[in-house]
Nucleic acid binder design. Structure first.
Lengths: 226, 226
DNA sequence: GTCTATAACTGGATAGAC
DNA sequence: GTCTATCCAGTTATAGAC
């Protein structure tokens, strides 16, 4: 197989991208539940059956969009990071980079962190890209001289076991207690972004810039960043 | 006007409830976006136009379901609370009571804390019931002898201003810093429940019982409970 | 007065004939 | 591939039953 793609391969790749772009555009209008292969085809001047050469079903198209979204938000977090900076600074950069991507792409964000689409079952392929933001946070914690487990409660057996499984999956050497603290930070990062984007801060922390900056620091303290 | 309701009033109240019950059932199957007035009417043996005597539009029906859900989860939090118990215990009861309701009513939970329904604009009427869980947490903080604002970062001007507005809205006397800490706890409570229900803990903190119990304590520490 | 049913309008998705 | 008939959605106007 030659390294350079044939004309047909290039055409196929291009059309695949066009289909995904159009599907993304529609996501914004009708939501994941309303995403219709036919509508995508119509907009592209194709016939719906032609799309099935590129995506075997609507759910496969959705899965691709989900994986793309996880990768994009993960890349945004990685790009915001600066491995040569101080841990505390890196932490804040990742938090803000993640939030900025979410605010620029609210519908893609809803797709991955909003309510599950009724009738859609996410395949295993989404798990790895879904962990990229968390991995960026882990790298910062690894590089930092973490404060010893704060005055927090001790870990139950089940929790310690889960932490060990996460450690194996992420290939890190962080202590169990640190991985549980990471889970809290990770949960909070997306909890705050979701509350902001989904309108829960209306009347309280809206606009959320100041609160987000505050809580990013707060969670940095919680995980023990110096 | 007599205190006891007329037969017509009773019939109307009952039918209103039946419509909402059926709509709730359908919510579980097709999601908020797929909720159809016609389908509800069909299932009830009525004709769609008849529903307009009870709800002026599909969106009004959705709004009622949203308000009911906020009130139910708020009541669940209030019922779980025990004002005579120790603050720390009350805090945990409220966290678990809220989560238990969410696990028992995942579709109603998604309706209020999931992605916004495309094309639906929530009216102001939802804000007060939406704050009931937060108010339960506030009551515990008021009754407790809170630790002075932890080693956290200082409040920016915008944040302090928002905290004062929240204080006025909730009619509490908590300090600004405490209200910001409450915001973090409130965000985290629903962030963790959403992550659990929406499947984000798959492969990590799943099942989430141990982690939830842990993080509830953790956030109790963060707000300064004794 | 209060409700329900009929019928009709618009708009979109879909299925099948061609 | 295209065209067309059909269906289902939200909504409204109107007529008649209680």
């Amino acid at each position: 197989m030659p390294a350079s793609k044939t004309a047909r391969e290039r055409a196929r790749a291009e059309l695949t991208r066009e289909i995904k772009d159009e599907a993304r555009r529609q996501l914004a209008e009708v939501g994941p539940h309303g995403l219709s292969l036919r509508a995508v085809a119509r907009e592209l001047g194709m016939v719906s059956s032609a799309l099935y050469r590129y995506f075997p079903s609507r759910d496969h198209l959705l899965t691709e969009l989900i994986i793309d979204a996880y990768n994009e938000i993960g890349e945004a977090a990685e790009r915001a990071d600066d491995p040569s900076a101080e841990p505390r600074d890196r932490w804040l950069r990742i938090w803000h980079g993640t939030r900025d991507w979410a605010k620029r792409n609210p519908h893609e964000y809803s797709l991955i962190y909003g309510s599950p689409v009724p009738g859609y079952q996410a395949p295993q392929d989404t798990i790895t890209p879904a962990s990229r933001v968390a991995q960026a946070l882990v790298r910062v914690m690894e590089a930092a001289d973490l404060a010893p487990a704060m005055p927090g409660p001790p870990l139950s057996g089940e929790l310690a076991e889960q932490a060990r499984r996460v450690r194996a999956a992420l290939g890190t050497s962080l202590a169990e207690a640190d991985l549980v603290r990471l889970t809290t930070a990770w949960t909070h990062l997306f909890g705050a972004i979701s509350f902001e984007l989904f309108g829960q801060y209306a009347g309280t922390a809206d606009p959320a810039d100041a609160y987000f900056a505050y809580t990013a620091r707060q969670l940095g303290d919680l995980v023990g960043l110096p």
